[in-house]
């Protein structure tokens, strides 16, 4: 997986997640219909994320970044199909837990890939450009959605996001896979 593909794929999924984020908050608020349930739903997400990080980190060393990014993108593509039809608080809590795990997967793989991109020489530059592009896309997505929402239903936003996640995963799939053996031997890929 080369750096460009990685950044493009990440920008895409950033676009997807920024696009739905505000509406997702709205949805949690509506289903939960109290701030305490809102808090619980959100807390569940953060807490599962926190708790699984050590495990995910270790797994990542065993399974490789690419697998992880694929898990995240496919997983999120699936979750985006569930969110529009959620009706009960319990379902919402479950989704929050799964998203907590998927979020941890994303956070970890994003960093491990970045770490492999240089042998320490230009790490700052690479990370800088990575954040530039992914954040720019995120920002553009939020603004565009602001306009689009007049023409689309909130439900269809989630479906679009799901497809974006899928495309992102295809990009990764298409990119040359560095066999895990190789990654282990030569962790830094220039």
């Amino acid at each position: 997986m080369n750096y460009r593909t990685f950044v493009t794929a990440q920008s895409l999924l950033m676009t997807a997640s920024s696009m739905v984020f505000p509406f997702y908050l709205l949805l949690i608020r509506n289903i939960g219909d109290s701030y305490s349930q809102f808090g619980l739903a959100y807390g569940l997400f953060a807490l599962t994320g926190a708790l699984v990080h050590p495990i995910i980190g270790r797994l990542s060393d065993r399974l490789g970044d690419r697998t992880f990014i694929l898990v995240h993108t496919w997983g999120m593509a699936g979750i985006m199909l569930i969110i529009p039809i959620i009706e009960t608080v319990t379902a919402l809590y479950l989704v929050q837990i799964v998203m907590g795990i998927l979020g941890a997967v994303q956070k970890t793989s994003e960093k491990t890939v970045l770490a492999r991109q240089s042998n320490g020489v230009q790490a700052g530059k690479k990370i800088g450009s990575y954040h530039l592009w992914t954040s720019v896309w995120g920002a553009i997505a939020v603004m565009l959605t602001g306009y689009l929402i007049d023409f689309l239903t909130i439900g269809s936003l989630f479906y679009i996001a799901s497809i974006l996640y899928l495309i992102s995963s295809f990009l990764i799939l298409k990119s040359a896979a560095v066999p895990f053996r190789v990654q282990r031997k030569k962790p830094v890929q220039l």
């Binding site: 496919w74 699936g78 199909l81 569930i82 039809i85 439900g155 479906y159 799901s162 899928l166």
Partner: peptide
């Protein structure tokens, strides 16, 4: 994915 997409929509 296709099936899930269809069901969900």
């Amino acid at each position: 994915y296709g099936i899930a997409f269809y069901t969900s929509t």
